[in-house]
Design a protein around this nucleic acid. Structure first.
Length: 957
RNA sequence: GCAGGGGUGGCCCAGCUUGGUCAAAGGCGCUAGGUUGAGGUCCUAGUCUCGUAGGAGUCCGUGAGUUCAAAUCUCACCCCCUGCACCA
């Protein structure tokens, strides 16, 4: 379909104002949203999958008599628009080329360096593209998360959350550029120039008091091994620095000390040479024994605190370091302290290997990797890794107070105890250097008084679990996943400082509401937005009191707003809510969808809780990775930009491709050839539908069959749409219905009244998925827009079991014949020209019925029993001789067939009616049909015996 | 490691919840015939193996099990993908 025709119909829909949501009290409604897009750049054809689903569903429900509301907004919050605007400022060639492609004038481009302007520009761009795809979203609902009225809504949301105790304050550690502010450390490196794949290592800093009151601070990943400490290690020749926190003075390496200041406050003092400490002793916390301080070249002063606790029984590196000490020193340290055993569970072969040999676990682990020396770091690391894993999974403590406690559990308990009662700390650092976009080294810093949403609250979780129980999810598996995610959910910081776009946090100046937290309840705001858009509400009317009344039915509302208007908006909200479906990509599975449910669980009343979530996969590039908006452009359009796709294929081909190519939950490799195929299919469908209008008269029985089949597919189409099974709907409408029509013609049907009835119903059913094509087909009929028409019901078409049975019977015969003729293809004999059919005698049907009864009872097929029953059927007595042989022959088939095949009431008649068709189909000169019981049919090979009910025998030559 | 998803005929991808009607839909590719000046489009048929009659054999990651019957249910194993935290 040409872009011009697409645009024509889009204009027609707009003129009919179809997209505008209208509530009609008492009438069914359908309200679904697509998780609104962030503003990170231009779209490619993969981005609109969710909207293709949403629009098809809304169009279906509109045509099925429901009031529908498909809103659209953009999520401008956060950093994407900031980053995009910055690239515009910097003159990023890819983005400038895209802007030029879109005909954006230079004076507009100049303004796009400003983030809010950039976000609004992209928002309008997205609306334009959605329109080109034929998506009927309500333009009056359009909102961005940086509009003043939206900000008023978010202020209410946070006020309400605070009132119910969902908002709490605390401190937490986060990645921060000391110059530029908070950054996200993730592989996409939106904010970074290096280190996006860095992991955060969480140490426990364990305090070891010296006898002079100062405290050596060791860092460890295994705090439970504190009981096994025999000494501390320092880097030889290294320096330590004093870190003063409150009354206490800690000694640790300078790098670590700086991190401690970032994460726990305090200040740095004098430096101390490590050499001054060697030979002195410290007291081991919890264990309360006293151990000496030694030097080891293995200590990396840049890692952790530069102070390492030595646990030679369980740490291979410590054991190796110990070996390198002079014998007298080693003896002075005493024997390694074995503090962990293994549980009773079975071990894998590689784990087993670590338990063989003599000595401590660490010595055995060293043995397993060939007893490396101190210089062989790779081997030491391997031994460490393997023992660490073994003891993490299977280790049990063997120290007083913790006997038999699994390592996993003991680690948490002991780390918490060290922090709470012994002056220990958490210490986080990156596994590799992380550098921000502007070249500054990113650090992990404690943010005090940070605001959190208290998702960890057990009562809140329980309420959310109850929501999940009642939620319809697509795919169904997502429900159980959601339960796990809700369990896993911890408190989330909900404010940011820096250059983020969003709503200023209402309770603390200088902070902005975090981008995920401002998009959890916005579906509700779409309802109100339309009143703001119409000028019936002003932003200053949108007070917490107003929203409390509208969304929660609490209180009298905002005095400045007319009571009737507030009542109307409240009714409007109650009309559209609950949300029927939240549609989003799988990236939303563990953040957006859960917080959406959490928030609704506490802000919306029981009857208005979300009803469903549909998760769809991504459109990926050839190698299967997700293509972000920025990547697509950079990679030269392996997935074409949406405008290119629309020009090449038209809106409907893309829409059908999204729906038909793959199940919603699966990822889909974008394949231009498959979109071509979708376009061809649409052309084929349109041709078939047009050609179905004609003045001919088909055979009445065939017409009855066509209408009966139409009754059946219309019913299935309704069910597919009603259960959001859009792939099935597409398959039915674009594959099965064309096949049905082709069969009808092949059987001798002609375009006439029956095909026209089918075509008119079909065309309407095409409209949800390929709306432009449906309008094109229907245009000559002069009946107005298909998009505004009503879908037919199955009952509008007469059922005809007999006609269906006759056709199914004939199809079976055809398949049998084809199978036999194909088997003979390779032979030299000439193709047969004559076929004689023999239709089974009636007694066979009776006898097969008996046999089926026996199978249904779980018995074998008893010939003896059949013979006995024959006695009460005198009319069958004549077949006494044939019966046993017959039953024996069909026994196997009866067992595997399931039910009886389709059989018309009069097989002979049905077959004779189809004889002409079969003759044409197989290029035969004669097709004769005889009842098996007929006196003397031509049957030189005695085939007629083989005839079964519903399955005639035949002879051809 | 934890959690989730997946491995189907040359390729992509349905089916698996509710076992039989599944040698397994659809698309692509390929083959033959028709249409066509040729090619493409389009139409028809075919596309695991064997088979001088509608049949048989084998097949849905591997192995085992349940069952009259398994792509579908159970168990074990192998391999691949995704997420693991404040990032949209």
């Amino acid at each position: 379909m040409s872009g011009a025709r697409d645009a024509h119909w889009q204009a027609a829909w707009a003129a009919a104002d179809l997209a505008r949501a209208r509530s009609v009290p008492g009438r069914r409604k359908f309200f679904a949203v697509v998780a609104y897009p962030g503003t990170s750049g231009f779209l490619h054809v993969g981005h609109l999958r969710g909207y293709a689903y949403a629009d098809a569903l809304h169009r279906y429900h509109r045509m099925n008599g429901a009031q529908v509301f498909l809103p659209f907004g953009i999520h401008a919050s956060g950093l994407p628009a900031v980053t995009w605007a910055q690239k515009v400022r910097e003159g990023d060639p890819t983005i400038l080329a895209q802007l030029a492609d879109h005909g954006v004038p230079p004076e507009t481009i100049a303004g796009l360096g400003e983030p809010e302007a950039a976000a609004r520009f992209l928002g309008h761009e997205y609306q334009r593209v959605l329109g080109r795809l034929g998506i009927l979203f309500d333009p009056a609902s359009y909102v961005t998360t940086i509009d003043d009225d939206y900000r008023a809504f978010i202020r209410w949301q946070f006020t309400a959350l605070r009132e119910i105790g969902a908002l709490v304050q605390g401190s937490y550690l986060t990645a921060v550029c000391p110059v530029c502010g908070p950054v996200a450390v993730d592989p996409s490196e939106t904010d970074l120039s290096a280190g996006g794949d860095a992991e955060t290592i969480r140490f426990t800093a364990v305090p070891f008091p010296l006898d002079d009151g100062r405290i050596l601070l060791a860092a460890t990943l295994r705090p439970e091994t504190v009981f096994g400490v025999t000494n501390l290690w320092l880097a030889p020749g290294g320096r330590l620095v004093a870190w003063h926190l409150g009354e206490r003075t800690y000694l640790l390496a300078p790098d670590g000390a700086e991190r401690m200041v970032e994460q726990h406050g305090g200040h740095l003092g004098h430096e101390v040479a490590a050499a001054d400490l060697l030979g002195r002793t410290v007291r081991v916390p919890l264990a309360e024994h006293v151990v000496p301080i030694r030097a080891s070249p293995l200590v990396d002063p840049a890692l952790g605190t530069g102070v390492v606790m030595s646990v030679p029984a369980h740490a291979p590196a410590d054991a190796a370091a110990l070996r390198s000490l002079p014998a007298h020193e080693r003896e002075a340290l005493g024997a390694p302290r074995v503090i962990l055993g293994l549980g009773p569970e079975a071990l894998s072969a590689t784990e087993e290997a670590l338990t063989r040999g003599d000595g401590t676990p660490a010595e055995r682990a060293l043995g397993a990797v060939g007893d490396p020396g101190l210089e062989d770091r790779a081997a030491l690391d391997e031994a460490t890794e393997r023992l660490y894993r073994l003891e993490l999974l299977h280790g049990r403590l063997q120290v007083p107070g913790f006997e038999g406690v699994p390592v996993r559990e003991a680690r948490e308990t002991i780390a918490a105890d060290l922090r709470a009662r012994h002056g220990g700390f958490e210490l986080q650092e990156f596994s590799k250097p992380v550098v921000c976009r502007n070249g500054h080294r990113v650090v992990i810093r404690r943010v005090p008084n940070q605001w959190f949403l208290h998702y960890a609250d057990p009562a809140w979780k329980a309420a959310t679990h109850r929501r999940v129980d009642r939620l319809a999810t697509f795919p169904p598996e997502y429900r159980s996943e959601l339960h796990a995610i809700v369990d896993w959910f911890a408190d989330r910081p909900c404010t940011r400082r820096g250059r983020w776009l969003g709503t200023p946090f209402p309770f603390e100046p200088g902070w902005v509401v975090e981008p995920i937290a401002d998009s959890t309840f916005y579906m509700a705001y779409f309802v109100v937005r339309r009143f703001v858009r119409d000028g019936r509400l002003r932003t200053e009317d949108l007070t917490p009191a107003f929203f409390d009344r509208v969304f929660r039915g609490n209180g009298p509302g905002e005095p400045r707003v007319a009571d009737a208007l507030q009542a109307e908006i409240r009714r409007e909200f109650q009309y559209w809510y609950p949300l029927d479906l939240n549609i989003g990509g799988k990236e939303h599975k563990r953040v957006h969808f859960p917080v959406f449910l959490f928030t609704h669980a506490v802000l919306a009343e029981e009857a208005l809780q979300p009803a469903g979530i549909l998760v769809h996969g991504w459109i990926t590039g050839p190698s299967g990775e997700k293509l972000s908006k920025k990547e697509t452009a950079a990679k030269g359009g392996r997935i074409p930009p949406i405008d290119d796709g629309l020009e090449r294929w038209g809106a409907d081909a893309l829409r059908l491709y999204y729906l038909l190519a793959v199940s919603p939950a699966q990822d889909l490799e974008f394949d231009p050839a498959a979109v071509d195929a979708a376009a061809d299919r649409i052309a084929d469908v349109a041709r078939l539908a047009r050609e179905a209008i004609g003045g001919g008269d088909g055979p009445p029985e065939l017409d009855a069959w066509l209408l009966a089949r139409t009754r059946e597919w219309v019913d299935r189409a309704h069910r597919a749409f009603a259960t959001n099974d859009l792939r099935r709907a597409a398959e039915l409408l674009y594959v099965e219905v064309p096949a049905l029509l082709r069969r009808y013609y092949a059987r001798g049907g002609v375009p006439g009244a029956a095909t026209e009835r089918l075509a008119r119903a079909w065309t309407r059913f095409l409209a949800p998925i390929t709306p432009h094509t449906a309008e094109e087909i229907a245009a000559p009929w002069g009946e107005g827009l298909v998009a505004a028409a009503a879908l037919p019901t199955a009952e509008a078409f007469p059922a005809s079991p007999e006609a269906e049975a006759r056709e199914a019977y004939l199809e079976g015969v055809e398949a049998d014949l084809r199978a036999v003729l194909r088997a003979g293809e390779g032979r030299a004999a000439a193709a047969p020209t004559r076929v004689f059919f023999y239709v089974a005698a009636p007694w066979k049907k009776v006898v097969e019925g008996w046999a089926r009864e026996q199978i249904a009872r779980g018995e074998g097929i008893g010939i003896r029993e059949a013979m006995a029953r024959l006695g009460s059927h005198p009319e069958l007595a004549a077949h006494r001789g044939e019966l046993p042989r017959y039953l024996e022959r069909v026994a196997g088939a009866l067992r595997t067939e399931g039910g009886p095949g389709p059989a018309p009431s009069d097989e002979v008649d049905a077959l004779r009616a189809g004889a002409g068709y079969l003759a044409r189909r197989f290029a035969l000169t004669e097709v004769a049909v005889h009842p098996e019981a007929e006196a003397e049919p031509f049957d030189p090979k005695g085939r007629r015996e083989r005839a079964r009910p519903g399955r005639p025998a035949f002879y051809f030559f």
